[in-house]
């Protein structure tokens, strides 16, 4: 009885792979790139046919040519490096402070009473609204960008760390105490792993805000970086460089998100939702 069911199940599996040639030839991760590639091909085609005017949207090949040109002059690498460094340093500063406050307020009622109301009030000020003030304070120096990115990153990390710790199953905490865990062991073995899924949500949210803040800040007040490169190109009507800048932002954002996802999958292996 069970033999025949097994056999049919196996046959079904074979049939499925036959009826889906796409999944047989492409590894799973490549399928996601199929639609973007198709879009680019259509875009190129329409540009060549003259359907999209080059001063509105240059062809992908023109954007690629701009990339080659700027790479050869060293401008592109320099600006990417500057932007990535700003993003990273702002993220580290804001993320660290957010993590510290999130942990402190999640673990200590006193700390929460002392600071949470203040932080929630500050949260209601959109950080990008501070740009004029920040320019007055720092001019267009690096501190301005660092400050804005750090502020933007702070809240998602803070809120989600706090929420993660608060939502740790109290029954597990009680279990830890019954089995004689001290505060330190309880934190590492019960509270932190329990808070981790929520902290990753905060991390990915923070990465999105990080790029968004940087784009705005670099576009308005900078003398280097991808955003500056785009604004310069706009003045000289170099649409291809403007489009290139936008694409680079998109790729950097995607890269950051992929790294976060990878970390998430590695550290949440126990979680049925992340198991493969």
């Amino acid at each position: 009885m069970s033999d025949t069911t097994l056999q049919t199940a196996a046959e079904e599996a074979v049939d499925k792979s036959r009826s889906r040639p796409l999944t047989r030839w492409l590894p799973g991760s490549a399928i996601g790139w199929l639609v973007p590639a198709l879009l680019i091909a259509v875009w190129e085609l329409l540009s060549r046919l003259g359907q999209i005017p080059a001063n509105v949207l240059p062809a992908p090949s023109a954007v690629a040519a701009a990339a080659v040109r700027l790479t050869a002059s060293g401008e592109l690498q320099h600006n990417i490096g500057v932007s990535a460094l700003r993003a990273l340093s702002g993220f580290v500063v804001g993320g660290t402070v957010g993590l510290i406050f999130g942990l402190a307020n999640g673990l200590s009622a006193l700390s929460e009473k002392l600071t949470d109301t203040t932080l929630q009030m500050v949260r209601n000020v959109p950080h990008l609204a501070l740009i004029p003030l920040v320019i007055l304070w720092f001019g267009i120096d690096e501190e301005a960008k660092l400050f804005l990115v750090a502020l933007g990153v702070f809240f998602p990390i803070y809120i989600n760390t706090l929420h993660g710790i608060r939502s740790v199953d109290p029954q597990l905490v009680e279990m830890g105490r019954i089995y004689g865990m001290g505060s330190w062991e309880l934190f590492w073995r019960v509270i932190l792993p329990g808070a981790l899924p929520s902290m990753f949500v905060g991390l990915r949210y923070a990465l999105g805000i990080m790029w968004l803040t940087l784009i705005v800040a670099e576009t308005i007040a900078a003398s280097s970086g991808i955003g500056y490169m785009a604004m310069q190109a706009r003045e000289f009507l170099l649409v291809d460089v403007v489009v290139l800048s936008i694409l680079i932002y998109a790729l950097l954002g995607k890269l950051a998100d992929s790294i976060a996802r990878l970390l998430e999958r590695l550290s949440l292996q126990w979680h049925p939702a992340y198991r493969r």
Partner: peptide
């Protein structure tokens, strides 16, 4: 307890080692 209260992020053996 009625609930097993196992640490979902520790393997079965790791959970037993808690004791």
């Amino acid at each position: 307890f009625q609930e097993p209260r196992l640490l979902p992020w520790a393997r079965v053996r790791g959970n037993v080692e808690v004791g």
